[in-house]
Amino acid sequence: MQQGISLEHKMKYILLLPLAVMLLLLITFPTIYSWYLSFHRAVLANYFEMPFAGLENYLRVLTDSDFWHSVWFSIYYATIVSLIELFLGFSIALFFNRKMPGKTLIISLFLLPMMVSPALLGVMFRLLLNDSVGLFTYLLGGVSFLTSEYLIPVLIVIDVLQWTPFAFLILYSGLQTVPVELYEAAAIDGASPSQNLFYITVPAVAPFLVIAALLRWLDSFKVFDMVFVLTGGGPGIMTTSLSIYIYKMAFQTGDFGRATAASILVLLAFSMPLVAFVRRARRGINA
């Protein structure tokens, strides 16, 4: 009986054990190993005997113009796609925010693009934008879209097609939280639709706009799949996002030291928005 009670007492830790073990094996160890690699000359050629390199990897990454190019490309890409997706997502959320027959089905159909693998979406566009057989190439007037001139706009459009539904979903959920009474009161005061929008709706869903912006920006900043499948980061380094830069440094150049140094720089940079997110989340949990 005594044993039974103490077992029940320990139960809360036992229940957490599988999660803790998994995180320990798959997060803690690799993170420590990453730090180790980043301070050593870890290239494929000397895999088994890695000399200590101090800060060399970090210096080489920070002085690499390709690295900075990929940082700027990722920031540029993330900023543009999240602005467009937020705007479109909010507009469509407002448009769908009324009584319509078959609305669940309509919304599910609208959400389908975000359930398609980004990599496969990339492959689809290789087909649809092909010069000789592409349906989109034909519909859009026979332009060769997969050339360096149009490549970045094409990537932006694909991202917008796939992830506007995600921004929509967050903002649509936000719209459901706005109390109807606010609009009723405004109607008595004779508010116009645009006044309703800017003085009631937008302030009420502002927290949701912030969340959608944050998630979309961070997710598109780390874009890999769709861009890699379509362009491989090229031509040259034109569409090399930070994730693609790290991947190529590790698995094409074979320099694990520099790849992990770049990863750790990314982790440090990410820790700022992460801390902000964690603070916010903690407030949400306590509430």
């Binding site: 990453s34 750790i264 982790l267 928005p273 964690v278 903690r282």
Partner: peptide, 21 residues
Amino acid sequence: IFVVSLRLLPVVVFTVPIFIL
């Protein structure tokens, strides 16, 4: 919060150490 914040990290930063491991 710790687990949820993992969602924000780029997957690519795990690939190198996990590949070797």
